[in-house]
Design a protein around this nucleic acid. Sequence first.
DNA 1: TTGAAAGCGCTAACAC
DNA 2: GTGTTAGCGCTTTCAA
Lengths: 342, 342
Amino acid sequence: MKDNKEVTIYDIAEALEVSPSTVSRGLKGHQSISSDTKKKVKAQAQKMGYRSNIFAKNLRRKKTNTIGVIVPKLNSHFMSSAIAGMEKIANENGYNLLISQSLETEQKEKTNVETMFENRVDGLAVSLAYDTNDLSHFDPIIENDIPLIFFDRVGYYKSAANVIIDNFQAGYQAVTHLLEQGCKRIAHITGNLSRNVYEDRLKGYKKALSDYDISFNPEYLIQNDLSDEAGVEAAKTILDMKPLPDGIFVTSDSPAIACMNTLKKQKINIPADIAIVGFNNDPIASYIEPKLTTINYHGTEMGKVVARNLINHLKGDYNISVTNTIILGTELVIRASSQRKP
Amino acid sequence: MKDNKEVTIYDIAEALEVSPSTVSRGLKGHQSISSDTKKKVKAQAQKMGYRSNIFAKNLRRKKTNTIGVIVPKLNSHFMSSAIAGMEKIANENGYNLLISQSLETEQKEKTNVETMFENRVDGLAVSLAYDTNDLSHFDPIIENDIPLIFFDRVGYYKSAANVIIDNFQAGYQAVTHLLEQGCKRIAHITGNLSRNVYEDRLKGYKKALSDYDISFNPEYLIQNDLSDEAGVEAAKTILDMKPLPDGIFVTSDSPAIACMNTLKKQKINIPADIAIVGFNNDPIASYIEPKLTTINYHGTEMGKVVARNLINHLKGDYNISVTNTIILGTELVIRASSQRKP
DNA sequence: TTGAAAGCGCTAACAC
DNA sequence: GTGTTAGCGCTTTCAA
């Protein structure tokens, strides 16, 4: 930043022989300024190459028009879509996004929260890291009345709003679908069960089974980190099961695909021998063979909802913590990997 | 943000019966302060729940420790990786990222630049929108000595640094590979040729052909917007060509795959009838059948390089515009879609 | 090693 | 409709 002589409202005031306040008011179209002066002020500002000093403004107004965003990883299909959605809404409303990633660790997440706090974001949107247990690092945020929204991976935390999908319903739907296709022994591959998303999907899985009078078999529950390697490992575990499961509900597409490919290599026929349902509707899901049945939910939409709520709250339109949880719809996308009947 | 009584250095000064300047110095570990006072100051700050006011600081220091990033779209594999890379480096160096997307339009890009300027980012990293022609909206950036780096999709613009991959070389390599596989009639599907990336890849394509004494046939050059639909259309165009091409170099994976699938439906054997090479090494490339040969380049790496250079420049380690263009390596990933020989 | 004081550029309460 | 004035909280020169 060049430090030689930025043009200030004083310079404009001087040139126009009015007071700085008149300039300040004129610039932002304050009502009690004659439209004549307004025009003059703006013209002069333009002419002198004036740009408002945002620090001074923030210093006075105590707000930044910036929304902080902390996500586990920026480069996933879902997250980048969610951020794209937030960016769009934020931008339309004159807000900026300050973005950081926790890289799935609680430690980094804490630092991120501090940074956001230091930078005095007006609001904060967070999707929790994989291993975050303690949420006390959000205390300063709440204590300072900074509106906080968790999205997708949310925590049980006072006075924060949540934007999530109906994970229970989605899990229920996925497993019911498998049951309808005639599956009797359905395995479930999932992640850290203290994350709401996986916990709720598991509940949906159990409920669907019980609705079909099938009792939950803990052996069929495989828990890992949902990496591709974990998908391969899970496939091996499943191949060792006796009797062999005839259906799998995997709580993420990418390990689902890794798992499916491994099974295929062992001459397992998908979906005839084992039907598979994933989660996320990643682009890959419709590119592989057989195409993967999965749960679709719109990241962009979720991002928009998050930003919209945060901004409405900041504008004072309504209080965010009243609307405590917003649940977005999902849909089951049925493709070849699970479809046994026409 | 709560507006009731934030703790300031004055409060600390008062409590400790020292001057504000001493507190200011103590807090940042200034050399000319006794380590005893430093300790006291820090302890007191901690005790009173002090947090520095970043606006006041910025107002004085005229810098924000923020780097602006403008990309066409956040939610592509490459871009989100690049941003993840930047975020990492920025964060390690105490910088924040202010991110916005141009959604591929020059108009939005202009607004974004203005916003970045208004927000006084210390540096700016930009990947150009698909349809940006005129670069004059970057003039204020340069005029105010804000370091500017273009990455991936760069422009010919004075005093901005570029971080790119060697598109010429990559195109050359891709096409040479097709030629080595025995292709004689190679079509090329590409995008807006006023974007360096596509322009240079085309040059590489031509050079490879000429090295094999094959003259460039403009009929084989298909230009579109690189969407999936465009890939399907391109496939149809190709099917109408007589003689049929026996190789295609597509300058992006996703239309390459759309194109390949369309060809497959018409009973074209890939790679026997037509060999295909894509570009980007998107995750899908290795999931489809046949797996797609493509050019790999690391978004994360590029993001890191961009951030590192910007920050080094800001720290005064060296001048960015001297190192005008940084070229990162790519590699050809040979997979089934192009491999005719073992 | 510490303090006094000026000022970064803007806003808004209050006065006219 | 416009001007005066007092800060917002911090840094930094200069002086002690």
